[in-house]
Computed example of a mutant assay.
Amino acid sequence: MSRPPRVLLGLWPDDRGTQYADQLVDGGDGSIELGYFSWREALLGSYDVFHVHWPEMLVRGSTRLESLLRRRALALVLWRCRLRRVPVVRTVHNATPHEPGSRAEQRVLAACDRATSGVIRLTTHTDVAFGSFVATIPHGHYRPRFDALPREAQVPGRLLFIGIVRPYKGVLDLIRVFRSLDDPALSLRVVGAPSPGQGELVTREAGDDPRVSTELSFVSDADFVREISAAELVVFPYRRMLNSGVLLAALSVDRPVLVPRSPVNEAIADEVGREWFVFYDRLDAPGLAQALRDVRARSLRGRPELSARDWPAVARAHRKVYLSALREAGRG
């Protein structure tokens, strides 16, 4: 191919803050042309590779009719890719969708899996049952954008949950555990847009405890950095945890994290420095208080080691996957 391959990302542009796609687009060296998703481009445009990230997000609409039309549109896009020998590459961010979809959705997602040639996983602990080849490319860090933003002074005793509030993330459990602690010097911030129904539950669980405060909406990059930098410890009360961009965001702002013990989190800790991690097997009040004492005793200096997650290296690794997929499709 005499020109840079053009890759259509299965992600819409989003101006609410730094997203995975923004980092991938900005981290490239121009040898690959990356474009954001639109249905018009996917159905009528000219591109060499279709790179899917969260396929369920492409087919979920605000009404049943919109969801039906999106499912059919994605099926048509996959048919068009097969007809034009456009390889489909998929990044597996999660083992399954965060919220289960309908049977009709599951059928079109299965078709997307069958159409996929190259699969990108973020860790070696992600099992992949589809695709003709698999590459492991770690999630990049957020320093290129976050280092330019102002930080807040750390608030002693401040614990933070930040990110989309979803049931599997255990935010309600965290609030209950925190409220069982009677230390008036502690505070808990819950920051992030709630999935349907979660905002009311968070507000109810927080009750009238003056130590618990919330910001239940999307926040800008600047506010994101301010919230993380003000925390003494960023807490991930997840009931299951595979890949987390927020984890990399917290480490990018040089804050220690409390995470569930898992092979993925253990591996990241070994990579970036175990002193930045506190693990738990079951989140409870004594463990939460002890985690804060452990972090204070470490007197953390320097920064987590994130050089293996520099975005130029991540972008180069993506380029190799795209070229391999094109060769496999007979277009290399």
Score class of each variant (00 low, 15 high):
V191G: 07
V177L: 11
V177P: 10
L181M: 12
E152T: 10
P150D: 13
G192V: 04
I162Y: 09
L188Q: 13
V165N: 04
A185V: 07
L174W: 11
L186H: 13
D173E: 15
F178K: 06
E205H: 03
D147S: 09
L188M: 10
R158I: 07
E200S: 13
L188A: 09
P150C: 13
D209N: 06
S187W: 11
R179F: 05
L159C: 10
L159A: 09
L186I: 04
E205F: 02
L174D: 09
V171Y: 05
S187H: 09
S187L: 08
V212G: 02
Y168K: 00
A148Y: 04
L149R: 06
P194M: 14
I162C: 06
F178S: 07
Y168V: 03
P167R: 11
F161V: 01
R179C: 01
G163N: 08
K169W: 02
G199Q: 04
I175Y: 02
D182T: 13
V190F: 08
L172S: 02
E205K: 00
P196S: 10
L186Q: 12
G197H: 09
A206W: 03
P196V: 03
R179S: 08
V190W: 07
P156F: 08
R158P: 02
V177Q: 10
L201I: 00
D173V: 08
R189F: 14
G163V: 11
S180K: 05
L149M: 10
R151A: 15
G157N: 08
L174I: 11
R145G: 13
P184W: 12
G170W: 04
R166P: 00
S213N: 06
S213A: 12
R145P: 05
R151T: 14
L188H: 12
I162A: 07
A148R: 15
R204Q: 15
K169A: 02
Q198R: 11
A193C: 08
L181E: 04
R204P: 01
S180V: 01
E152H: 13
G199T: 04
F146I: 04
G170Y: 03
I162H: 10
S180A: 14
P196L: 10
E200R: 09
L159F: 14
V191L: 09
D173P: 00
G157T: 07
S180N: 11
D209P: 11
S213P: 00
E205N: 01
L181W: 04
L174H: 12
L186F: 13
S213W: 00
F146H: 07
L159E: 11
L174N: 11
G157A: 07
R166I: 06
R204D: 13
L149Y: 09
Y168P: 00
A148H: 14
V190A: 08
L172I: 12
D182G: 14
A148D: 15
E205T: 11
E152G: 06
D208Q: 12
G199R: 01
D209W: 05
A193S: 14
L172Q: 02
I175L: 02
S195W: 15
G170Q: 05
D183R: 06
R211V: 00
L201R: 15
V165C: 07
R204V: 09
G170C: 04
P150Q: 14
G192F: 10
R176N: 02
A148G: 15
S187P: 06
V165T: 08
A148F: 01
